[in-house]
């Protein structure tokens, strides 16, 4: 491709390879080092290497608490999973609903609503979090004074507020993924099913939704991932049962323990596998 002398050609080729290698060291190096340190028998969470250990994962001696024996960390894992499952369910249902709305229906202001829907992806997470916090605070106060007995408690920082806050932007992503596939659906398939005697809802259920299956699956993985790793928005809405990123952040401000390396490895493996599954799906869909 580069019309130069052969030696010049191979030199530039080597420079190119060297550059890509540097980029890979930059992107993967830090992750590799943290993974190595998670198994290093050195309580300072640094080098030198002092032998292999699983203590930072499983150990409950007074000076060494492994991640699986750390009750608060495990509670955070549980609440992260609970939040992520709720966010995934709501966001996928909303995504399917929005896809049908934007692909199949015609109505005044459709373009405007579509632009508006992209908003939560553009607004910084901190601003999204604070605006939802301020809004829900007002509603909760109104509910409390109107109905009494802490009627607005579910809108105070805690599980449901975190779920709602994350749904605000995760549902945009699920909508984009599912809409992309619904656009490619051949409407005549649905009509054929109806010609063969199926009702409209049966045709949608058995033909269209089945066609959307892979996109729904992909959107669910992405939604789970976005929820599981979200910090910015969650930070403002989190209550007495923090998710993993929130508890990690508060610990990191006080210092580093090897246990956090182990937590990182666990997060990397979980999110990495989910991410690979999602990008494999996206490749199939031609989205990435």
């Amino acid at each position: 491709m580069f019309a130069a002398s052969n030696s010049q050609k191979s030199l530039s080729r080597w420079l190119f390879y060297a550059y890509i290698l540097l980029i890979l060291v930059f992107t993967l190096g830090p992750l590799v080092i943290v993974t190595i340190l998670a198994f290093n028998n050195n309580p300072s969470a640094s080098f030198p290497w002092q032998g292999f250990t699983l203590d930072w994962f499983k150990s409950s001696t007074p000076d060494r608490v492994g991640l699986f024996d750390d009750a608060r960390m495990m509670a955070a894992v549980v609440s992260s999973v609970k939040v992520a499952v709720a966010v995934t369910l709501i966001s996928v249902i909303l995504g399917v609903n929005n896809a049908f709305l934007f692909v199949r229906e015609k109505f005044v202001g459709k373009e405007f609503l579509y632009m508006l829907m992209l908003g939560p992806l553009v607004v910084p997470g901190v601003v999204l979090g604070t605006s939802i916090l301020a809004f829900s605070h007002g509603i909760a106060n109104a509910l409390d004074s109107a109905l009494g007995n802490g009627a607005g408690t579910f809108l105070r920082p805690g599980f449901w507020l975190v779920v709602l806050g994350q749904v605000s932007f995760v549902a945009t992503t699920t909508t984009l993924v599912i809409t992309a596939r619904l656009k490619r659906f051949d409407l005549s398939l649905e009509e054929a099913a109806m010609d063969l005697g199926a009702t409209r809802s049966a045709a949608v259920l058995h033909v269209t939704l089945r066609f959307l299956g892979p996109a729904i699956f992909g959107a669910a993985i992405i939604a789970f991932l976005f929820s599981f790793e979200n910090f910015n928005t969650t930070y403002f809405l989190s209550g007495p049962d923090p998710t993993v990123p929130i508890i990690l952040y508060s610990r990191l401000r006080f210092g580093i323990s090897p246990e956090i390396n182990a937590v990182s490895v666990l997060m990397m493996v979980t999110t990495g596998l989910l991410g690979l599954a999602a990008s494999a799906f996206q490749k199939e869909e031609g989205l990435a």
Binding site: E229, F231, I256, L274, G275
Partner: peptide
């Protein structure tokens, strides 16, 4: 793409 799938918090931690 891989580091992107890891939480931003973990990225900063590394």
């Amino acid at each position: 793409v891989l580091p992107y799938w890891v939480s931003e918090l973990i990225q900063a931690f590394t």
